[in-house]
Computed example of a mutant assay.
Amino acid sequence: MHVKPPASALHRAAASCRRLAEGWGGSPRALDVLTALGCLGLMALDLPGLAAADNSLSGPLAAAVLAAGCATLLVRRRMPWLSYVAALLFIGWLHELTLIQFALYSVGRYRGRRAGIVATVGFVGFALVLFCGVPGWPESRAETLSGFLSLVVPIGVLATAVGIAAYRHDLVGELTARRAESAVLQAVQQERTSVARDVHDFVGRELTLLTVRSEVLSVRARTTSYAKDFEELADTARRAHLVLNEIIVQRGERTSTPGVDGLAALARQSGQAGSPVRLAMDADAHALSPLRQAAVYRVVQECLTNAAKHAGGETVDVTIAADGPHLRIAVSNPLPARVPGRAPVSAGSGTASMSERVRSLGGTLTARRTQDAYEVVATLPLR
Rank of each mutant, 00 (worst) to 15 (best):
A161Q: 04
V162F: 01
G163D: 03
A166V: 02
A166T: 05
Y167V: 05
Y167Q: 07
Y167P: 04
R168C: 01
H169W: 03
H169Q: 05
D170M: 03
E174G: 05
L175Y: 06
A177K: 00
R178Y: 02
R179H: 06
A180H: 12
E181Y: 03
A183Q: 09
V184G: 05
L185N: 08
A187Y: 03
Q190L: 15
R192A: 14
T193V: 10
S194I: 07
S194V: 08
V195A: 14
V195H: 11
V199N: 04
D201S: 12
D201H: 13
V203I: 11
E206Q: 13
L207W: 03
L209Y: 09
L209R: 14
L210M: 12
L210F: 00
V212H: 13
V212P: 06
R213P: 09
S214Y: 03
S214K: 03
S214H: 01
S214L: 07
E215M: 09
E215F: 05
V216K: 09
L217K: 05
L217P: 09
V219P: 05
R220A: 15
A221R: 12
R222K: 13
A227T: 02
K228N: 10
K228S: 12
D229H: 14
F230Y: 14
E232F: 02
E232A: 15
E232R: 13
A234Q: 07
T236N: 10
R238G: 05
R238S: 13
R239L: 12
H241S: 13
L244T: 03
I248S: 02
Q250I: 13
R251T: 14
G252M: 01
E253D: 13
